[in-house]
Structure formats: structure tokens, C-alpha cells
Write a protein that binds this DNA or RNA. Structure first.
Lengths: 348, 348
DNA sequence: ATGAAAGCGCTAACAT
DNA sequence: ATGTTAGCGCTTTCAT
């Protein structure tokens, strides 16, 4: 044991920094964790030692004692039996996920909390659960939109702090943030009627998603007030191609539609494409309202009138709820609903 | 200390499972890590104890000693000064990222390695680096496409096993996997010429990306062989809107183009839209070849002929290289190039 | 304000 | 085949 310095191939430890600075481990630890009770000069010496040795705290050692990792996961989930395109492909093509991530970062970054994105490919679900149980993260933001998605329930059992991006199918203990879907559909109907449209129809989303169900329910409820009790309804899958097919089906049976509420922008874009292909002018012959105000809406031709959900703000709120829950596990869970707004563009 | 059982609010430890099963910690550890030298009956007892106590290994404690986490990150990076749309939005709209993730999962899942996705919002870059340095993951798959992206160099300094998704600007020690971009451009040109086109042009990608540079270089090189030494070139930004604008600029100055090589599918889709808007039939008047064979290509109208890169297979190879490097840090790094193929659809 | 010492939960020699 | 023991690198009382 002639010497203990010299790079052993392993990263430097607290101990080594302490020796280098001529102080105790505790003092270095205090400096690193910004504990105020350290003499300014000593603090400086230690900081120099840290820089000189290139010291980086070892996460495993730290979180073994603190029981925190200062990172949270955003888990993107879908149940098994979904449609054609591979899940990962769809997940990364849906602008919604990016907006949620951005909104959450807004809150987490200033707090120095790391955010990792975890897609749940259904066959790998158990792996994801194991990852979360092992304590890689302090909490979970769960993006799940299918009524029969088992993930909300599974996470509930895991007893890890969780916040959901929408009302789950069966109720769970976790908090959730959602947009008032029905209010959004109301806005769309009022606007179409205000534009003088009297023969409305909808391309609704999958009825096994809460968003699909509620936007349709809102549409129907709103139309009741305008004396069109049984409007044409065509279901599609929230994709552009689905929207195209749905529009064809709709026009085949209801050629006289003059106002169309489409449950998301992607489908609306597809529907508009078909409408024009079949000789309808948009908005002159058919006015179209989408939902989401995703980037697709502004880029479409013509640009889409749509219902904006404040996705980023909602995600930020999710992050705040999660942090509060992590810091105080006994905090009561709650549901928070945001109001959607109408964004008028060229399609109405 | 009347008793040591009873749930203390904290998750059960190895120690508790051992006591419950009436064996030593080591034996439980052996069972968990599937060490063969455990008597079948004892193994069973222990497994029952694990189930009964609901034991889950504590990751921090384990990786403190093993120095592994059994998880890797896929880091999506872009340099600061990029265009309009927020980075996260773009990242999650680009189908490429989803395909890379899917391809990597293919290799990692069977090995029980967790994959987390980490977007690098440039202002948060230091946070990401810290995350990686702290040892949350054993290695990094870095998706970076800008020539001046500092991430490859920064990761190199971090001394963490890394594999890149493309040739980096300045060389680094890490391995990388790429497609033979120039060969792809050649395929496109040969095909267009084979279709009888003689007045070719290109909408190239950003010249600050290797993919943009090399696809253009390949296009020019191929055309030399067909006696069109100085073809029209318009640069755009790999987005649909960029493709539209580029097509307008191109036609304004070169109305007689009859064959168009577009450096990615998204731009090609935009270009086709404009071509038709300006009265050109595709492919009759202008044949169009895209690049990537992304989902956009098949969905476009008309469906796009394109150059397919085997993205999933490339990503799988990245994962294999990374695992090999993690398991043997002295392993030599290497570059692996994949051959692109021509996918013929309706646009040519 | 600083240091000493205990211990977080686990794996991996080593001993038996 | 199983048990004993010594750390892994850090935070956190508790003394001083």
C-alpha cells in the first residue's frame, strides 16, 4: 500500500477528492449537495479538487442511501391488439408525444430532474414494469389512451408515483390531467352551425379510446341542441389513411354533408384530401373542423380549423403533480381538466 | 427489537427473503441471478419466499457492486441553431426515430436490456451528459445527423461505450453504422434514366448534414456518367413544407425537368403536391424518386418510388456493436455500411 | 463548521 | 452446495 492515488481505471470517488483537498468525505459531500454550513475557503478548495480529479458522483451509491434517482419516466403505452402499423412507428409519428415531452421538460429541467422516454411495446410490457419497479426512476408520467389498456392498473399495483395523461378506463388511484373533450366537440359544432352549416356529420375516433368516445358523445349532445338528433357517424382510427377511408364511406352514403367534425387533425387532413378528390370544395361545399391543433393542422391545405388542447400546459401540470406526489407520497390524487379552444383557419 | 418482520413501509430486502426462507443471503442472491449451483428444493423454497414477500432486487445496491445497469440509452441529438419547429416536435414526427428504436429493441429485449429514449434539447445538453456520466446506463446509441453536432465528441470524452447512427462530422473513437448514401443516389439516377428521363434535377437535403451532402454528391457523380454534368440543385430542409418551397423554386427556373431525385420522402411528398398543383402529372411529366422508404412514401399520392435504407436492421446492428463494446471495452471500433435498395412504386 | 463512523442492499471472493 | 465476510461509494447522524 505504498500509495493510494494514481488512476485505477475507475472513476474518482468522494474519498479521493477528500484526500486531494485535505478534508473529510463529509465535507466534500456537503459541498456537492450545496449544504450551506461550509466555510467559503474550504468550499473553494474542494471545488478545485473536484475539478482537478474530474469527480462525478456515483448515482448507484447515492440513490442507495437517498432512495431517489432524480429522474422520471414518460411511458407511452398502447394495448396489444391495435391496428396495422407497428406501435413504435406510430408512437414516433404522432406529434402528440413530442408535445407532451416538451411540456413536461419545461417543468422538470429547471428542477434538474431527468426525463427518459419509454415506449411500451406490449410484448415487452413486463420488462418495462421491471424497469420501473427496480427503482430506475422516482415516478412515471403515463401516456395511455385506450380504455382497456392494463398499464394504469399495473402501475397502480406497483405503488410508484404516477400521473396519467387522460382519464383511465377503470378508475385508479393515480391523478390524471385531461382536456374537456365534450366541451371541445361543442365548440366545433357551434362554430360549424355559426358558419351556416345544417347537415353535419362526424368522423369519430376509435370507440375504445376515451378521447374517441367523448368527442363523439360531445358532438351528439351538441347537435341535439340544434335539432339534428341522429347525425351520420363514421368511425376511424386516428390515422391519415383512416380518415381518407372514412371520408369515402361517409360521402358514399351522405353526399350532401356540408359540415364535418373530425376527431383529430390527422384524420381531418386525410378527409379533406378525399373531399377535394371527390370534387368538394373546402370550405365552400364542406366545412371541416379537426381536433388537437397539431402541427399537421397548420400545414394542411387548406389549413385546418381545429380544437386546440393545451397539450404542453397539460403535460407541465402532469409533471408538477408528479413532483408533488414524489415529495409527499400521502398527497391526495386529483383530476384536472383543461378547457379547449377553437382555432379558426381556412377549412371552415 | 422484539421482531424484525412486519412491513416497515420499505420494500423487502434480500436479507428478509433469506430469513423467511431460512437460508443465507448468498443463496437467495444465487437463485435470483440464476447461478446453477443451488439444490432444486432450496431453489424452490427461496422462490416461494420471493413470491411471498414480493421481493424486487434493489437496482442501486446491485449496480453499486456490479457496475452495470443493464440498460442503454438511445440519445436523439440535434445541434442548436436548427430551423423553426421545436426540436421535440420534429423528433417525434420523424418516422426514422421510431424505426431505429424498434430495430434496437429487437436485439436488446431478448437480452433483457432496457432501452430508454433521451431527446437532447440543446439547452438541456449538459443535463443529458450528466445523466449519462452518472452511470444510469451502460452505453449509448447516438442518433446524430448534423455535421457540427458536438454530441459525438462530447460522448467520446465521457468515455462511455457509444455507437453512432451515421458517420460523424469530425472522426471519433466510437463505432458507427450507416447506409451507403452515394450508392443510394446512384440507384435513383439509374432508375430515372432507365425510365427515359434526360433532364434530371434534385431537391437535396441540408448540406450541414452528412446525409444531405452525400446524397447530393452521389447524385452529381452518377449524372456525370450520363452526360449531365451540372444538374439543377435546390436545397431544402428535409421537411414536407421545405420540399414544397423547393419544388416551386425549381420549376420557376427549370420548367422542363422530367426526372426529380428528392433526398427524402417527406420532401418528395411536398414536391409532388406542388408539381401536381402546377399542372405536372406524376410520373408522366415528371418522375420522382424519394429516399428512406419511410411510411410517408407508401401513403403518398401517388405512392413514392424511393431508396430504402434498412433502418431497422442497421439499428439492430448498432445495438449488437454496443453490447459487444460494453462486454469488452477493449474491442476495436468499426464502421459498418449497409447497401440501400430501390423500391419502385407509382411515382416513376 | 468539520470529522468519524455507521449503514443503505447487494455481489463476490473465500471458506466450509 | 451453502454460509461468512468484506466491501461497492455515498449520505447522515452524532460527536466535537
Amino acid at each position: 500500500m505504498s500509495t493510494v492515488s494514481a488512476d485505477g481505471g475507475r472513476p474518482p470517488t468522494l474519498e479521493q477528492v477528500a484526500r486531494y483537498a485535505g478534508v473529510s468525505r463529509s465535507t466534500v459531500s456537503r459541498v456537492i449537495n450545496a449544504v450551506p454550513t461550509v466555510a467559503p475557503e474550504i468550499r473553494e478548495t474542494v471545488e478545485r479538487a473536484i475539478a482537478a480529479t474530474g469527480y462525478v458522483p456515483n448515482l448507484a451509491a447515492r440513490s442507495l442511501v437517498t432512495r431517489r434517482t432524480d429522474s422520471v419516466a414518460i411511458v407511452i403505452s398502447e394495448p396489444d391488439r391495435t391496428s396495422g402499423t407497428p406501435f413504435l412507428n406510430r408512437m414516433f409519428t404522432d406529434p402528440y408525444v413530442g408535445r407532451v415531452t416538451a411540456g413536461a421538460q419545461e417543468v422538470l429541467l429547471p428542477q434538474n430532474i431527468h426525463l427518459v422516454v419509454i415506449p411500451v411495446d406490449p410484448p415487452a410490457r413486463h420488462l418495462v414494469l421491471r424497469y420501473l419497479r427496480q427503482g430506475h426512476v422516482d415516478g412515471v408520467l403515463l401516456v395511455s389512451s385506450h380504455i382497456d389498456d392494463p398499464m394504469p392498473g399495473l402501475l397502480d399495483d406497483l405503488d410508484i408515483p404516477t400521473v396519467l395523461s387522460a382519464r383511465p378506463g377503470p378508475p385508479v388511484r393515480a391523478s390524471y390531467v385531461d382536456v374537456d373533450q365534450r366541451a371541445g366537440a361543442h365548440l366545433a359544432v357551434e362554430h360549424l352551425v355559426g358558419r351556416g352549416r345544417r347537415r353535419l356529420a362526424t368522423i369519430c375516433g376509435p370507440l375504445d379510446m376515451t378521447a374517441g368516445q367523448e368527442r363523439l358523445a360531445g358532438f351528439r349532445a351538441a347537435l341535439l341542441g340544434y335539432g339534428q338528433p341522429d347525425p351520420p357517424v363514421v368511425e376511424a382510427d386516428f390515422t391519415r389513411a383512416g380518415g381518407e377511408a372514412a371520408a369515402r364511406r361517409l360521402l358514399a352514403t351522405h353526399a350532401d354533408v356540408d359540415g364535418l367534425f373530425v376527431a383529430n387533425d390527422l384524420m381531418a387532413e386525410g378527409a379533406v384530401r378525399v373531399l377535394r378528390e371527390l370534387g368538394r370544395r373546402v370550405p365552400d361545399d364542406v366545412a371541416v373542423v379537426g381536433f388537437d391543433d397539431s402541427s399537421a393542422a397548420a400545414e394542411a391545405h387548406p389549413a385546418l380549423t381545429t380544437i386546440r388542447q393545451p397539450v404542453e400546459e397539460m403535460a407541465a401540470e402532469m409533471a408538477r403533480l408528479l413532483l408533488a406526489r414524489i415529495r409527499d407520497p400521502r398527497r391526495l390524487s386529483r383530476a384536472i381538466l383543461f378547457h379547449p379552444t377553437l382555432v379558426i383557419r381556412a377549412s371552415t
